Amino acid sequence: MLLKSFKPVSFVITVFFLLLGSSLNCFSQTKTNKYDIVLAGFTIGSMQADKTTSPKAEDYQLHSKVEFWFFGKIHVEFLQNVNFKNGQLMKATTKSDSNRGNFVTTVNWNKDHYDVDANSYKFHNEESIKQAVYGTPAKLYFQEPKNGDELISENFGMLTKVIELEKGVYEIDVNGNTNTFYYEGGILQKVVLENNLKNYSIKRRVD
């Protein structure tokens, strides 16, 4: 009875789809890191960072939401998508929605330069970048940098260089504000971001 109920065609089809699913997983993998956003000791929001890797491309997404009171309620939602191919930055899009306005910044590789259209609160930049670049701040959430690494700020469309302050501690200047990244064992633990109103931190969440 067991032999009669065995269906070779059905078995082969099942194995095929199992192998196909396994193969697809090998070609594209996503890693997720979660963070709390902290201001003056209070958690005011959260951020999720995703990295999706395939044989020739890397895609990064940062998504955060913040709400706090500063002479009125302030709400900010931030979404950033960054694409690398063969190690080089190809495209970055940053969207921020807030009660101070909604802004979009794009950085796109165009043959031999990056077209920049950067917009944020009281800031606009359209100066192109005439060189290939292989890093951005979004990458730093998954990879410890090296001293002297050159990055493009996705939000402002400007070049910046990584400065190593000490082992595991790195600094970049973004449009006149300093962002400091702290690593332990190659894993990002905290980012301290300088702000005109008040410095705040992005801290790794361990669930």
Rank of each mutant, 00 (worst) to 15 (best):
L3D: 12
K4R: 08
K4G: 00
S5T: 14
F6C: 11
K7F: 15
S10P: 10
F11S: 13
V12S: 14
V12C: 09
F16I: 08
L19R: 02
L20I: 04
G21V: 00
S23P: 05
S28W: 05
K31I: 04
K34H: 10
Y35D: 00
D36Q: 08
L39S: 09
T43V: 14
M47E: 15
M47I: 00
D50F: 08
T52W: 07
S54E: 06
S54G: 05
P55E: 01
A57S: 13
D59Q: 11
Y60E: 01
Y60G: 03
Y60F: 13
Q61D: 05
L62A: 05
S64A: 04
V66M: 08
W69H: 09
E77T: 14
Q80M: 14
V82M: 04
F84E: 02
F84C: 09
F84P: 04
K85P: 07
N86C: 07
G87L: 05
L89I: 06
K91A: 07
A92P: 00
T94V: 06
T94H: 01
T94I: 01
S96T: 09
V104G: 01
V104R: 01
T106C: 11
N108V: 04
H113G: 08
Y114R: 12
Y114F: 10
V116R: 04
D117G: 06
D117C: 02
N119M: 00
H124K: 10
E127A: 02
V133R: 05
P137A: 01
A138G: 01
Y141W: 08
Q143A: 12
E144D: 07
G148Y: 13
E150Q: 11
L151G: 09
F156W: 14
M158E: 15
L159G: 06
V162T: 06
L165C: 03
K167V: 09
G168D: 05
Y170Q: 05
I172M: 13
D173I: 15
D173S: 12
D173V: 14
V174I: 15
N175G: 08
G176A: 07
G176V: 13
N179Y: 15
T180N: 10
Y182P: 07
Y183W: 10
Y183L: 01
E184A: 15
K190Q: 14
K190P: 10
K190C: 12
L193Q: 15
Y200L: 08
Y200C: 03
R204V: 12
V206H: 14
